[in-house]
Simulated scan of single mutants.
Amino acid sequence: MADHIQKIVTKLPGLKSVTDVWKTADRWLAQGDSAFLTDLGIALAGAYGSDAGRTWQYRSVFDYLLRLLATTPGPGNVAEALRLVSSTETADRKLDRYAASLLASSQPVEELAVAFTGHASEELRACLVHELVLRGADVTKTPGIAGWATSPHWTHHPLGWLPLALSDVEGQPDLPSYSARGGSHSMPFGPSANREMRAGTGGCVPSVEETTTDAATKGIGTAVANWAEESNGRIEARVFDLAAPLEAESVPSMLLGLGLECLKGAGKKTSFSVAACPPDNAWRVLFAAASMGGAYNSGAGGAYGRLAAWKSLAGLSGTAEGAPAEEVEACARECAWYGFGADTKWFERVAWDIGLTSVSPERRRLAVLAATDTD
């Protein structure tokens, strides 16, 4: 077996196609030898991991090996997938997040308990807990997982802030499906969704004062930050205080009068639309943007995507920084939420467009998040 692995490692950079290597992995796994895939992946990482940016063959084969192990039910496959991502040659926080998503999407929850006793980093375990929560698993009662998930030792971890069960506002999140050769996910945003909205522009509009701070901009934009940092995206996140309560029928006119970059030219010859939406829809859009990313990146994954969606929801609803998730949800439910869109030059109108605004319960604070990305 060692000679076979070394032969693959040596020839890999010269291959014009890696499908034969994929087929080799398929055969070994079908024979019940998942350890071969792990040993091959570790050997490839040792040889080419530091030059992964230029060795496309390595990236393709390593990803296939991990996907094949993580998405194929069978004795030992989970343990071998964990050994692969936990080896010295491959250990990486981003890889941990990716592996947690793959495993949670494809393996029975009872099979994943091995992650909390065997080869796995604390980062992978934290991500796996919340990837399972997103899929409806009761991690507080699952043997082998409950002890770790409910232990106070990881409360310092960023994901320790998240509740260990889905809240009502999270509903049934849009989650990716994976196979060895690819994956798919839905996109609850974009120009087609915006064009379905209809609204007038009448009503009395109170005077406003912009109160946007750097902290507010960062908090509100957390869910879409990856679009700007890792892709071609633009973000506009702003907050306004209103001199008088804002009536629902005045929201379209209010938005047009705020001087938003994303709405320059809207409402004249350029179409503009607004529609009320529940906070559940807002969270769904934020989670998809954070977890699955924009045009040129793959997002933060389910666990960190969940955290980012909550942070944006908190910023938009005006919840105090550091407040528990229960308080964020309660505040968000008291707000009035709207989705908006426009055929302005600011929006790319490809597939990644978001327009969200929230109005506080007393109707004297308005927060806006707009985001767009293109390939």
Rank of each mutant, 00 (worst) to 15 (best):
A193G: 04
D168F: 01
M187L: 10
P206G: 00
S231V: 06
I220S: 05
A223V: 11
D168G: 14
D168V: 13
H156E: 10
G182P: 11
A215D: 14
I145R: 04
V224E: 01
P188M: 11
P191L: 11
C204E: 15
D174P: 12
R181G: 04
T201L: 07
N226D: 09
T217P: 00
R181E: 13
G136W: 06
E131Y: 01
D214P: 11
G182E: 08
A237W: 03
G190L: 09
P173R: 02
N194S: 15
C204L: 14
E170V: 05
G221H: 05
T222D: 06
S177I: 15
I220Y: 03
P163S: 04
P188Y: 04
M187R: 08
D168T: 11
K141C: 10
N232L: 09
F189K: 08
Q172T: 12
T211R: 13
N232G: 02
T155P: 05
R234S: 04
A223R: 09
G144D: 13
G136I: 09
L175S: 07
S167A: 13
G202A: 12
W227Y: 15
R195H: 12
A215R: 14
R238G: 01
L159M: 02
G183Y: 11
P188T: 06
G219E: 08
L132W: 04
G160L: 02
V133S: 01
S151H: 13
W148D: 05
T142E: 13
V208D: 01
S231G: 13
G200S: 15
R234L: 06
L166F: 08
E170I: 06
R195I: 03
T150D: 14
T140S: 14
E210A: 10
G147S: 10
A165K: 10
P152N: 07
R195N: 03
G144F: 09
A165H: 14
G221S: 08
L134D: 04
T217L: 05
W148I: 03
G203P: 00
R238M: 04
S184G: 06
D174H: 08
P176C: 07
W154S: 07
G147C: 04
R238C: 01
E209C: 11
H157T: 07
T150I: 03
A228G: 00
P188I: 12
V208A: 01
S184H: 12
Y178N: 03
G136L: 08
W227P: 11
L132N: 04
D174M: 05
M187Q: 11
A149S: 09
R135P: 14
S167Y: 03
S167E: 12
G182L: 11
G190S: 03
S151C: 12
A216M: 05
V139W: 06
G233S: 11
T222C: 02
I235G: 00
E230C: 00
G203W: 01
R234M: 02
Y178Q: 10
N194E: 14
Y178E: 10
